[in-house]
Each structure stands twice: as C-alpha cells, then as structure tokens.
Design a protein around this nucleic acid. Structure first.
Ligand SMILES: NC(=O)c1ccc[n+]([C@@H]2O[C@H](COP(=O)([O-])OP(=O)(O)OC[C@H]3O[C@@H](n4cnc5c(N)ncnc54)[C@H](O)[C@@H]3O)[C@@H](O)[C@H]2O)c1
Ligand SMILES: NC(=O)c1ccc[n+]([C@@H]2O[C@H](COP(=O)([O-])OP(=O)(O)OC[C@H]3O[C@@H](n4cnc5c(N)ncnc54)[C@H](O)[C@@H]3O)[C@@H](O)[C@H]2O)c1
Lengths: 236, 236
DNA sequence: CCGAGTTTGTTCTCGCAGTCACAAAGTCCG
DNA sequence: CGGACTTTGTGACTGCGAGAACAAACTCGG
C-alpha cells in the first residue's frame, strides 16, 4: 500500500464495506449528540447504545477507519467525530441542487438539517412557468433549462430529484449530462444511469408497504394463536 | 407444513426473506405500470428490467410466494399483481396517522401517492396550538392529546413521525401506548420501542452522506489517476 | 401426437455481513 | 513499580443474499 502516490494526508484503509458506510453517518450523529451534552469521551458500548447498534459491530466498523480508540478508555468524541467526517468527506460542505419544487421539494428546501450536516442547497429548479422567480427558503426558483449552467458554475456533484415519476428519468439524464454524479431520487421510478453515477432512492410507499407486510403477518399470527395456541409445540 | 390451522385461505409459503419483502413493492409498482400500458403478461426478464433487478433474483423472490408463473409463457400481470398485493397485505387500505404537521408533515399529507398504494391518511396530529383546527389536505389538524382516541376509533396500526428529533421518542412512546405497532420515522433519532413494534427510518441526511462518501472516493481516485496513471500496474 | 423452443422454478456456489469471544494494550491504584 | 481491571481491535464462525446455471414444464406449430 501507499506505493508512492501519497497525494493526500494519512491514507486511510480502503474498501470500507457498504454496510459500514451506511452506518458511519449514524455514528457521526450520535457523536454530535454526545458532544452537545459536553461528553468528551465514550466507550464503544455507550456509543453503540446511542446509535442503536451492537457494540461489536460498531468497533468493527470503526476499525475499518483505523485505530482511533484507546484500550481501557474508549473514544475521544471530538477526535472520532472528525475522523468519521473526514472519511465520509463532509469536513467541507457539498453543494446540492433540488429539481422539482412542489410539495416535497419545498419541504426539502426549507429543511435546515441539510446545511448543518455538510450540505448546502445552492439552487432550486423547476420546469413549471408559474414557479419561476418565486422565492423558497431564501432561494429563487430557477428554470430547469439553467441546470447545466448552475452545475458548472457551482461545481455541483449531488442532485436531488423530487419531480413526478414520469419526469424523473428525463431529469436524471439531464443531471448526468450536466456533470452530476450522485443522485438522491424521491420519485417512485427506476432510474437508468451510466456507470460511475450513484443513485440512492427514498421511497415512502415502499417503506409503508414493508410495514404493512409485517403488520399483516402480526395480525395473521395473532389470529392463529387464538385458533390453537399450542401450535409451536406441534411444529417444533 | 399446514399442521392443521388452515384458518385463512390458501396459506402461502411462510418466512419470506427481508430482502425479498423489500423488493415486492417494487415489483408491484412495475406491474401496475405495465398494466397501465395494457400489457397483460410479461416474462421475468421484462419485469426484472422494469423493476431494475436481476431476473434470476426476481424469479427467486416470486418463488417464495408460490408458483404463479407459467413456464414457456411468463406471468399474468393482473394475477401476479393481486398475489403480491395479497402477500404484502395491501388488498385493503391501511389507516395511517401523521404526527408533526410541519414542512415535511404537510408535504406527506398532500401526497397523493399514499392513498393510491393501499394507505389512507385518517388523521393529522400536532402539538402546537397554532396548528389546531387548520385544514391540511382536506383534513383538520387535531391535538396530539387525541392520539389514543383516534387510534382506537380508526383501528390504526401504522403511524408516521415527522416531528423534530428531540420529540420523536416521546411521540413514539405515545404511539406504542395507544396501540400502534408499526412506525415510519422521519426524525433523525434512534427510537427505542418494545419488541413486536416495527420501526422503519427514512433519513435524508444519511442518504446524502452516503452519496458524499462515494463522491469523495471518486474525487480521490480521479486525482490519483492524474498523479500517476500507471499505479494499477505497480500495485497489481 | 410430437418435437422444437421458451421460460419458469430451483439448486449450487460464493461472498458479504453480523455476532461471539478473546488476546492485546492501555489505565489506574496501591 | 506491578498487578488488577477495563476496553479496544480482530479472528473465527455462521447465516443470509446474489447470481449463474440447469432441469422441469409448458406452449405452439406442423
Ligand atoms: N410529497 C411527498 O410527501 C412525497 C412523498 C414521497 C414521494 N414523493 C415523490 O416526490 C415527487 C414529487 O412529489 P410532490 O408531492 O412534491 O409533487 P408536486 O407535483 O407537488 O411537485 C412536482 C414539481 O416538479 C415540477 N416538475 C415537473 N416536471 C418537471 C421537470 N421535467 N423538470 C423540472 N421540474 C418538473 C413541477 O412543476 C412541480 O413543481 C413525486 O415523484 C412523488 O411521488 C412525494
Ligand atoms: N423538511 C424536510 O424536508 C425533512 C427532511 C428530512 C427529515 N426531516 C425531519 O422531519 C422532522 C420534521 O421536519 P419539519 O421540517 O417538518 O419540521 P417542522 O419544524 O416544520 O415541523 C415539526 C412539527 O412537529 C410539531 N411538533 C413538535 N413537537 C411535537 C410533539 N411532541 N408532538 C406533536 N407534534 C409536535 C411542531 O408543532 C411542528 O408543526 C424533523 O425531525 C426533521 O429532521 C425533515
């Protein structure tokens, strides 16, 4: 490793598993919460509880970043926060654009949680003429045609899609064309993008349907238990 | 199997893997889209493409529900749609309540996609006095104190939390107390709930941070390639 | 009725992820 | 200074999920 490039600072361990990457932001938030309560250090057990995960899993996850804890003591909250933030890449702010300023887009634009977590909304775009020039969350809504110009000017690499499903693919294509390489998609549509572009999907209906599945199973089980409450003895 | 209970109709194969459950709604949506285009039947290959998954994975997923396809032909769109909907439990509508009618809560209340996918918003609740009595999406905002009453009256088992993070645990506790057993949580907080209660989390900041991680890795890789574009030859 | 063609359902293999358990490494007190 | 205690970091094990490949089953044309 480190075969001579040495371009950036302390090269961290590469190849962090996806499952771990998905949890690092959770740890970061838990650490921030601890720091807000003036807690300077914590054990893996405490942090795991705050993040809602198994402590062994947490330690293993952190070990992918390096050895930032002290045996017998635990982790320094500020130090570990910084290391995770650095690994994720949120030590500096990422510019983000939102396309589709309807119900959801406006809620997202008004959401303060983005800016506090390493992201800065730099532009809101919408295709509808009646949206043009309106001010949402202190930003002027701009025409969708300005996409490429804005992306180039602000060095945007992350785009949020909150347009109706039929328009999502077109918007995604335009984003990719403009140079965006990470997309957060709220539209219930499957997006086709070239390799090298990451898409993450947030789909409320799917989440609710998953809950509904478990809910029906619970209901079915309860009914069964009423029918004959000794079944587990038979099948086992 | 089928050790004598046989309470409900054709008992399907039990123990559907979580990963499959999470994809069934995607298949259902793809099927609905096909039906809208008057397509009566489709092969696993076509459906897989529409859902954005591998066809072998799709067939395996569907096989957990039973054998609803015809070899040499494919799947009947309507029939398969119904079978998946039945398995998920969205053949009838589920009543849902939303707690926290701020930016996000209002967007959710106004979202028509819920009702069309097996869910019906029956009540909007908020603790703030100035929200009381306001009408959002045709529903009157009701006081948070009415939670238990509403849940009992409407047989609600699914609740949506869109309050600020510090209030989320309190709301969740009240929901569980009122009899809700499935929660969709938008607040960036870890919820502690008793066993038997399902919680699913939707966290935008986390999604963006995951994108940011891959984005920084892309950036680092590009830089490295510029530094010395024959590195793969050295390390390999 | 039969054979060619098509597509499902399933088996097998491999890799990733979660959990346990423990040695290594540090702290702290006597 | 040394030993008891605490907590990390990691190796081993297990189970789930993804994907390839193939046999079984069905259709359709002749
Ligand atoms: N509202 C919610 O709570 C919610 C929840 C989950 C998912 N969604 C999804 O998010 C998306 C947006 O939902 P919404 O409720 O905000 O819808 P909306 O109709 O209120 O807003 C959509 C906006 O996108 C704009 N738009 C349409 N086509 C466009 C294009 N080609 N380019 C640029 N802008 C375009 C429209 O002008 C409109 O302002 C939908 O796909 C919806 O399914 C919404
Ligand atoms: N707005 C977004 O796009 C967005 C995105 C992601 C996550 N979130 C999260 O969703 C939650 C809501 O966001 P928002 O932007 O709608 O906030 P908001 O402040 O606009 O709305 C919160 C609402 O909850 C109500 N509330 C507060 N405490 C309550 C309680 N104990 N019981 C009942 N109601 C209560 C408030 O009166 C207010 O109406 C936050 O946790 C936020 O982090 C929002």
């Amino acid at each position: 490793m480190n075969t001579g490039a040495g371009s950036s600072a302390q090269e961290p361990h590469r190849d962090i598993p996806e499952a771990t990457v998905a949890r690092l932001p959770v740890y970061l938030r838990a650490l921030t919460s601890l720091a807000d309560r003036n807690i300077a250090s914590c054990s893996s057990e405490e942090l795991a509880a705050a993040a809602g995960v198994n402590s062994a899993k947490l330690r293993k996850d952190l070990s992918y970043l390096g050895s930032y804890g002290t045996r017998g003591v635990g982790y320094d909250v500020d130090y570990l926060s910084y290391q995770i933030a650095r690994e994720i890449g949120v030590t500096h702010d990422w510019p983000v654009i939102i396309v589709g300023i309807g119900n959801l887009g406006q809620a997202l634009a008004n959401f303060s949680g983005f800016s506090s977590r390493g992201f800065r909304t730099v532009a809101l775009l919408d295709a509808a003429p009646q949206m043009q020039g309106r001010s949402v969350a202190g930003l002027e809504v701009r025409p969708f045609a300005d996409l490429a110009e804005i992306v180039a000017a602000e060095q945007v690499s992350i785009g949020v899609i909150s347009v109706p499903a039929p328009a999502a693919q077109d918007v995604a294509d335009a984003m990719v064309e403009a140079g965006i390489s990470s997309i957060l998609n709220f539209a219930p549509a499957v997006l086709n993008v070239p390799a090298g572009v990451d898409v993450r999907k947030v789909d409320l209906s799917i989440e609710l349907q998953i809950l509904a599945y478990h809910e029906s199973r619970k209901a079915a089980e309860a009914e069964e238990t009423v029918d004959n409450d000794s079944e587990e003895g038979i099948t086992a």
